Simulated scan of single mutants.
Amino acid sequence: MPDLSALAWVVLAVAAVIVGISKTAVPGAGTVAVALFAAALPAKQSTGTLLLLLITADVFAILTYRRHANWGTLLRLIPAVIVGVGLGVVFLAVADDAWVKRVIGVILLVVIAITLLRRRAQGAIAEPGRRGPHRIAAATYGTLGGFTTMVANAGGPVMSMYFLAMRFPVKEFLGTAAWFFAIVNLAKVPFSVGLGLITGPGLLVDLVLVPAVVAGALGGRWLAGRLNQGVFERLVIAFTVIGAVYLLF
């Protein structure tokens, strides 16, 4: 077991609760958990430790929203996500922690700006009959999402902006995100083991934090049923901006 202070354990426990909530209620909040883990643990260990907790929370998200996924959207994303994950593996092998954080922060802020501008201009990605924008958006967001989720478990904000731009209702948003990240996170495990991100001490930390993830997931399920569409979208955007600014500075 890593020798952590009481404060570090509190920070990790709070982050674990946020992981659960982010999977079943407010996806953008996941970036806050990324930041807290990076503050409490060494950078590489934090990435691998958090990944396994994310997978635990993915199980609860799928059980809750498994019938609400938009599979057409998920299938369009697959090729781009594979490319993004591959680029992320290469980037992790050559970049240091500072560059990783700054690059992801810039990407997230650009994605937020583009998404909000598109919505304001009424050029929604999901406009009926416009298949071109669908393909372009899937390629762009899918590549960025695969890259950011591989290098820092920070793909949530990128994909949240895509699903938000698709104008999914709350449950369809959460169901599509649940299946997306369950599949992608499982696919990341072999790469994370190979890069030394998943370690024995990290597994022990995960065992201690799993109950906090479960509590957050159950609390998030209760919260999601009481959020209206407008509040949900504002929360997603707000947490995405907070996470992006933290990673950048």
Rank of each mutant, 00 (worst) to 15 (best):
F173H: 06
A35W: 14
L87W: 09
A39D: 15
R221L: 04
K171P: 00
Q122G: 15
D3W: 10
P2E: 09
R119M: 10
L235S: 09
Q45R: 07
L108W: 04
L248G: 10
F173A: 04
R226M: 15
F60C: 01
A121N: 14
W9P: 09
H134W: 12
K171G: 02
G123K: 12
G145D: 02
L204R: 05
I136N: 12
L235G: 06
W99R: 08
D96N: 12
V245P: 13
L203H: 11
G84M: 01
L108I: 10
N153R: 11
F168K: 09
R118N: 12
P211E: 07
L218T: 14
I242T: 09
F60E: 01
L74V: 08
F173Q: 03
N228P: 06
L227G: 05
L209R: 04
R66N: 02
I112P: 00
F173G: 08
P2A: 08
A177G: 02
G146P: 14
R102H: 05
D58G: 07
A124H: 12
L77P: 04
V90C: 02
G129N: 14
A40N: 05
A217Y: 08
M150L: 10
G30I: 03
G225N: 15
L174W: 00
F168P: 01
S5I: 09
A137P: 11
Y162M: 14
L174I: 04
A80H: 06
V241S: 09
K44V: 12
M161L: 02
R130Y: 14
V205P: 01
F180P: 02
S192D: 15
P211G: 10
L144C: 12
T49D: 14
L53H: 08
G28K: 03
L203E: 00
V59Q: 01
W99A: 09
A6V: 14
A25S: 01
M166T: 07
E172G: 01
I21M: 10
D206L: 10
R118H: 09
T176N: 08
V26Q: 03
L164K: 04
V59G: 02
R119H: 09
W99D: 04
L74A: 12
A69W: 11
F180R: 03
T149P: 00
L74G: 08
F191Y: 07
G175K: 02
L51K: 04
T240D: 05
L209G: 03
R66W: 08
L117V: 10
A25R: 00
V11A: 13
A154C: 11
T143H: 01
A182V: 07
M166A: 10
L50M: 11
